[in-house]
């Protein structure tokens, strides 16, 4: 359980808070997307989950322990944070070194290290790069190495900052399936993102931040169809939500944000229309 209680934060020397009185509870096994405009405080918030930043006011509790009572190294065992820019994280000469480093630090024996590294590289379609330098890989691939380097020690809570940037369609699809798999293993997944189409496909719980405050906390279908909230957070409706909004159909169209739900809703309506007129149009 990640629990943020009446938390405010400001950077040293800054004149105003980046986060103001944030309250947020994330249960084990939940999938949450933190969304909001650039500079809304999303990254600052998740940096508190592994103790990189400590609150100025209020508290952040991880599984019942105040983050101020533990070091980042201790917290990281349970909270894996994957940075937006993989280059802030990667340092080793080969992908396998990168992944083994933390495991050795945590005291796993070599056999376990080897097995875990192999497993995670296979899961993320990176096995062919095991002996490559992370720095010759493409941006999208480096991002996956950074993800693998955290997942390899099997943290309970996994936080990903903008995981879809630079990923092509197939990789995003793979990421989505991977997240589903992690949730089914009981992991908590928190993503920071402004990729509305990705959120529309995954439908996590959405926590919406604007100017350092939580302005909404609800299902993706509710938030991504609420124009007022979207405008405040500099987001837009996903394409399908916009389409449904433009159609002259009353009723439950408001909750539809992805193509499959739209199809399910539209097919009977279109069948009826075609039957009445005898042709498509």
């Amino acid at each position: 359980m990640i629990s943020v209680n009446n938390t405010s934060f400001r950077y040293i020397g800054a004149s105003s808070d980046v986060l103001t009185n944030v309250n947020l509870q994330i249960k084990d096994g939940e999938f949450v997307a933190i969304m909001g405009e650039n500079g809304s405080g999303k990254t600052t918030l998740v940096k508190m989950f592994n103790g990189l930043l400590k609150p100025r006011v209020g508290s952040v509790m991880i599984d019942g322990t105040d983050t101020r009572e533990k070091s980042v190294a201790q917290l990281s065992r349970d909270v894996g944070l994957i940075f937006q820019n993989p280059d802030h994280q990667l340092f080793a000469e080969t992908v396998s070194e990168e992944l083994s480093f933390s495991l050795r630090n945590f005291g796993f024996n070599e056999e376990v290290v080897k097995r875990r590294v192999t497993n995670i590289l296979t899961a993320l379609d990176l096995e062919k790069y095991v002996d490559s330098s992370p720095f010759v890989l493409s941006g999208g691939e480096r991002k996956r190495v950074a993800l693998a380097a955290i997942l390899v020690w099997d943290p309970k809570h996994i936080i990903m900052d903008e995981p879809t940037i630079g990923q092509d369609y197939l990789q995003k699809d793979r990421l989505r399936n991977f997240i589903v798999q992690l949730i089914s293993q009981g992991k908590t997944i928190v993503i920071v993102t402004h990729d509305v189409e990705f959120v529309a496909e995954c439908k996590p719980r959405v926590v919406l931040l604007s100017k350092g405050t939580v302005i909404a906390d609800d299902a993706a279908t509710k938030i991504l169809t609420n124009d007022e909230l979207l405008a405040q957070a500099s987001l837009v409706r996903p394409q399908i939500a916009e389409l449904m909004h433009q159609l002259p159909i009353s009723g439950k169209t408001l909750d539809i944000i992805d193509a499959y739900a739209a199809r399910e809703f539209l097919v009977p309506k279109l069948r009826e229309a075609v039957q009445t007129s005898g042709h498509w149009r």
């Binding site: 394409q239 399908i240 916009e242 389409l243 433009q246 159609l247 002259p248 159909i249 193509a259 499959y260 739209a262 199809r263 539209l266 097919v267 309506k269 279109l270 229309a273 075609v274 498509w280 149009r281």
Partner: peptide, 30 residues
């Protein structure tokens, strides 16, 4: 979405790439 609808048997000739094109086609039918 239009690809899915075609697979469901609707004889749609257009291939919309924007929301406006899709909504205009669907509105004509509805």
């Amino acid at each position: 979405l239009f690809h899915l609808l075609r697979r469901d048997g609707f004889p749609i000739a257009t291939n919309p790439i924007t929301v406006e094109q899709a909504s205009s086609e669907l509105r004509k039918v509805l």
